[in-house]
Design a protein around this nucleic acid. Structure first.
Lengths: 331, 331
DNA sequence: ACCCCTCTTGAAATCGATTACATAACTCCG
DNA sequence: CGGAGTTATGTAATCGATTTCAAGAGGGGT
């Protein structure tokens, strides 16, 4: 029992070599003579030495951590993306730090963007100020993006996905289609709305009835109330919601009031969160490859940290998932 | 433009003081003369100085990070707990790192338990080896726990919660009650099963029919299949499932086969994840205060890091949430 | 025998901030 | 006016690993 925690000099002393040699065994073993290496490794074992990351990081001018800035940590949509990121970062020797941009103040969130705190940043919140992020650590944007901020984006084609969804409804014969939008000002809201309008226009149909929303269950429920409040013959026969959570709230509300999905209204969601395939009826939706988004975002960030300057976007494919919540309108 | 990134000596030079004084302004301003302080603060502003955390951490022998070890990051159950932890840790100046114990190997996960990597550990996975965790950084266990491992636990009373659930079903007149258990070997599985059996026994009812499960949607669905496969007159009239996810899978499956909940079977879940209040029927369940669990766990860990040696458990109250999925059995 | 190379290794500087210790200036009071 | 006490600041050691530079040992060619 010498020190509380053995350091590199303790190992060096025991092995009868210098600290430099021990360090080389640790980080670049092949340049050390085999016999010496054996000695050092034995000394490491005997002392139970564990390297101090703060010291290494200081010397290397890196932190070994990557921060994910998430708009809302308690939203299950993001947890699977985080899982994807962790799966790539851990093997590469990076820690995944997470921060909730809503919980912490807009301003204080930028402390994560310092090189001495994290080696890189994955931003999943498009509402962060571009100027605060500029000229700091490498950044990758995932899912959402920040207009005017140049950084690789890993995302889906939201507009096209929305088109896909709406065209499915049109294909079923719906002519009166509503859209429940995301929160105002959000880039996803705009893209999905645009796709919706575009699809309707392309088929010569009137602009959609827009219900306000904010991606949450509660707002979907309110959209359901609003739909129910319309005179029966003015109700859209199909509703496309910008998130599955809202679709759940919507269906819950209309079912609660005696409506039957899809007989009385077809419902289409967005995201394909796991639960919706088990509801009754199972929800038709657009599948976002969440795990893959996380993995790709992490990989792009590692590339950037490694010096790759490419800032091209990575667009991942979505999938139209057809289940029981959509059908032809009642004649 | 002097260095790439200004350091403390640059500030000192500009302000005409020593680095010690700058450091004091940074960490202990009141011991510095007001005028000097002003000078230093001005110099900090001019240089755009930002402190290097790796250096400070090295000196302070701390890391500024806390790791949460989660069994499954993509499970929405945990995301809200993480949000609670983040809400406490961020203001205290700690980063929240997350790691998925399933994605990373059992062995490699212990690298997080080193003092040079994290100042503390919040473990949400009861299946980790106690010996690996011992004598490392301060640990707090949340939700699950590790038998024989002494550390503060922040949890609910699972046995009592299960009793509460089952007694509600008994109160409705159910006499034939089934339980869909969690994964074998899990501490929660055992506690909830024990509570179930205890409640039935206390009312002179036979032991429950046990369906195997593992907390996932898919396993709940399989339980539904198993329930349907029973002869109609042998089917339990009520099923208590050890997680809401399983309850969703179960309900989805039986509804899919024409059964009506709660007419044909009452269903009780566990957790009260947000979605289940919007299903049709809305799920009766046991509410775990997830955000509070996260907050408390983080707070207990901060206390421990601060030197508090108390290892008493924190038991948070659950709430029986009654919704539409439970009713009296059909006569 | 001599020079040049390669292979190993060690001494010491370095990463950037913190802090124990020393010192200088100034106040207060008998 | 001298000594104790207080306040403010600087000097230099320190946290623990990495890495540059230099040098010694050994091999091979001429």
């Amino acid at each position: 029992m010498q020190h509380q925690r053995p350091k590199i000099v303790d190992v060096a002393r025991l092995a009868g070599v210098s600290t430099a040699t021990v360090s080389r065994v640790l980080s670049n073993p092949q340049i050390v003579n085999a016999e010496t290496r054996r000695l050092v490794e034995e000394a490491i074992r005997q002392t139970g030495y564990r390297l101090n990351h703060a010291a290494r990081n200081l010397r290397h001018q890196r932190t070994g951590g990557v921060v994910a800035l998430v708009p809302n940590l308690s939203n299950p949509f993001f947890s699977q993306i985080l899982a994807g990121m962790a799966a790539v970062l851990a093997p590469a020797g990076y820690n995944l730090l997470v921060a909730d941009t809503r919980t912490e103040g807009r301003a204080s969130i930028l402390r994560y963007a310092e090189p001495s705190r994290a080696d890189g940043l994955i931003v999943l919140d498009g509402s962060l100020p571009a100027d605060g992020l500029a000229r700091r650590v490498p950044v990758v944007l995932a899912c959402e993006w920040i207009p005017g901020f140049a950084a690789p984006r890993v995302k889906i084609d939201n507009r096209q996905a929305a088109q896909l969804a709406v065209e499915h409804l049109i294909g079923h014969g719906h002519r009166h289609i509503a859209h429940v939008a995301g929160p105002p000002g959000n880039v996803l809201t705009d893209a999905r709305l645009a796709g919706t309008e575009q699809a309707l226009k392309a088929h010569g149909l009137p602009a959609p009835h827009i219900f306000p929303g904010d991606f949450t269950l509660a707002s979907g429920r309110r959209a359901g109330e609003a739909w129910l409040a319309l005179p029966a013959d003015e109700r859209p026969t199909a509703v496309f919601l910008a998130s599955d959570e809202m679709a759940c709230g919507f269906i819950g509300e209309v079912q609660h009031n005696g409506m039957v999905v899809p007989r009385d209204v077809s419902v289409m969601g967005f995201d394909d969160i796991e639960l919706v395939s088990h509801m009754t009826p199972a929800l038709s939706t657009i599948r976002q490859p969440r795990e893959a988004i996380g993995r790709q975002a992490a990989q792009r960030l590692l590339d950037r940290i490694g010096g790759d300057d490419g800032s091209a976007d990575t667009i991942l494919p979505v999938e139209l998932v057809l289940r029981g919540s959509t059908a032809a309108p009642r004649r």
